[in-house]
Write a protein that binds this DNA or RNA. Structure first.
Lengths: 341, 341
DNA sequence: TTTTTTTTGAGTGACGTACCTCAAAAACTT
DNA sequence: AAGTTTTTGAGGTACGTCACTCAAAAAAAA
């Protein structure tokens, strides 16, 4: 049987009240007594029964996801997953809320974050680009004792507690090495498509991709990234231009969203070109692409895992308990048609 | 605030005791009353507070892992992981025990399983080959109300509640398709190595591998599996014979354990042969192989995930609650040096 | 209708922890 | 040594559920 507070009290030769004062850092206990209690805790290997504790303090963890709006399939899937996971999380005394902020408006985002300080949340999960305003807002949150984690998109230069997601450079490298192998020593050019290179992930993926591909395979030329910035016409124009300029395009790499659109634009060229198509993020569309063979590989991360992990990490931070690194590590998943499941 | 039993009692116009009788399926309640209570539960959306319930009934889940002995790196890693996870599981009122049985002795295994019936365990997790004795023992366990799940190695024709692991045919198919792509239209032979074809996984992996490889790539000949049955000499002999007979071996596929040994035996041939090496299970050794480039791909499953999932599923079965399919799905992981992490 | 059986209500004491009060004891000041 | 302050103890109530008892009420059987 696990030791209880009563066992600690007996072992330390003090009363229950004193043990309680020590455990919950309440004032009015001498240093010597505190040490005596801590020694007993140590010796008996006492660990507080968190579910009993949460029951007693009638606690519900209040967590908020702050996401930038956007209607890419990835964003949809993310929001949906949060919704689903939140349902189950409720059973474990967690109230999860989602707040959407317009993209490209750091002030708005910062205002939202500030608004969370006065006891709307005990923990905040953020997916947004890093800007000075955000850095500032995160510092404030932390100063108010609110746990902060970023998901999918890292915020490395902030006071955040944790990042839940994958290393984008490694993800790009993985894409690069698969491109190299799937190209089979053929010579030619690789098209890279990105909605915007403002997001750190896009840049880092491209970085890793180039490193893995060019380094060991100089016969390949990786073309400059085509950025389409939410403008379908620009995408179409640029892709058309690329195929007009080069007739030896043998691979395409899409570093972020836009697969749906891109696939359509690409279709007419696929008859003449034997293309290796590598994309990121497993969504409805990339899934279909894998199934019908139009996409060869998808590099992704398990969104469900990301969301669940985010909540576990937030709770651990709030409770000041250890996190299980092995469980919280997000893997870079390589998905082919065969292991799509 | 979540509704409590008291709210249900009030809403249904009955006493607490009656609600309790209904909730815990105790006798002495009329059908009409049961329905009234259930209606109230439905309407208020009541869900039993499991942590309060477990606290009250002073419950600790007793789970037993039954594994066949063996000193492959995979088995070691599995046992170690169970050990680790069990530590954390203790905080959630789960007492996890591991029982090892000698391989190839179905009677012993069956006896062990029978021994678990009389209240040693509420749930049993099994990794062992399926035999009539095992089927029988599992049926008995189930009849005694004990939850049974298999892990890693499926037991499809038994009364088990659940299987935690990957589809071996799909895993083999994944290996096959990667072999095909990495071979880059070269012609030649592929060596397949397996400790034993007695285990269903080995057979299924091979099946999937052949299907993916041969079907779309008939220029390749996949050689008959070399079985070494825990005999290093036999492995060495057979590998040597294979390389003596064929000078166009361009790929090797190891369907299970033996990578450590095989790598050593293979080493001298690697200078003359440009080989694609695909293996299963990410262990210390295959990890090192990926790192130094001697292994190209490892197909694996996250052992930590498997073990944690096993415990969650067992608990869900015992509690008769839903399992979160998305969370419990074990993925077929493709591991390259770049995404090893 | 009376008797028997079944169903229901009211209540109690756990489980392990939190959080509170009030009085007593111990530790300090002067 | 007296007073003051700090520290400690004893006790209670609560959280939401379980598991039980005993008596009362309702339903079914005679």
């Amino acid at each position: 049987m696990r030791p209880t507070v009563n066992d600690i009290a007996r072992a330390a030769g003090v009363s229950l009240a004193t043990v309680d004062r020590v455990l919950n850092a309440r004032p009015g206990v001498r240093k010597v007594t505190i040490e005596r209690v801590n020694k007993a805790i140590e010796e008996l290997g006492y660990v507080r029964d968190l579910s009993a504790a949460n029951l007693a303090r009638r606690r519900t963890y209040r967590f908020v996801f702050v996401l930038t709006e956007g209607d890419s399939q990835f964003q949809h899937a993310l929001r949906e997953t949060i919704e689903e996971v939140a349902q189950n999380a409720a059973r474990e005394r967690m109230a999860v809320e989602t707040v959407l902020v317009p993209p490209g408006d750091p002030h708005h985002l910062a205002r939202v974050l500030h608004g969370l300080e006065d006891d709307r949340a005990e923990g905040v999960a953020i997916m947004a680009p890093e800007t000075p305003h955000v850095r500032d807002a995160i510092r404030h949150l932390k100063e108010n004792g609110i746990a902060v984690v970023s998901l999918v998109s890292d915020l490395p230069n902030t006071d955040q507690d944790h990042f839940v997601g994958i290393d984008s450079i490694a993800a790009g490298r993985t894409a690069g090495v698969l491109m190299r192998r799937f190209l089979c020593k053929n010579k030619g050019k690789v098209l890279v498509l990105s909605n915007t290179m403002i997001l750190r992930e896009s840049v880092e993926r491209r970085l890793g991709f180039d490193a893995a591909l060019i380094e060991s395979y100089p016969e390949i030329e990786v073309l400059p990234s085509i950025e389409w910035r939410d403008d379908p016409d620009r995408l179409e124009r640029n892709v058309r231009a690329a195929f007009a300029s080069y007739d030896d395009i043998i691979g395409v790499y899409v570093t972020g969203s836009g697969n749906r659109l891109f696939s359509r634009v690409l279709a007419p060229y696929r008859q003449d070109h034997d293309l290796v198509y590598i994309a990121h993020e497993l969504t409805e569309h990339t899934r279909a692409g894998l199934a019908d063979g139009s996409i060869d590989v998808v590099i992704t991360q398990d969104i469900g895992h990301v969301v669940r992990s985010t909540l576990r990490v937030l709770r651990a931070k709030v409770d000041k308990t250890e996190i299980d690194a092995a469980q919280e590590r997000i893997r870079i998943d390589i998905v082919l048609r065969e292991n799509m499941g």
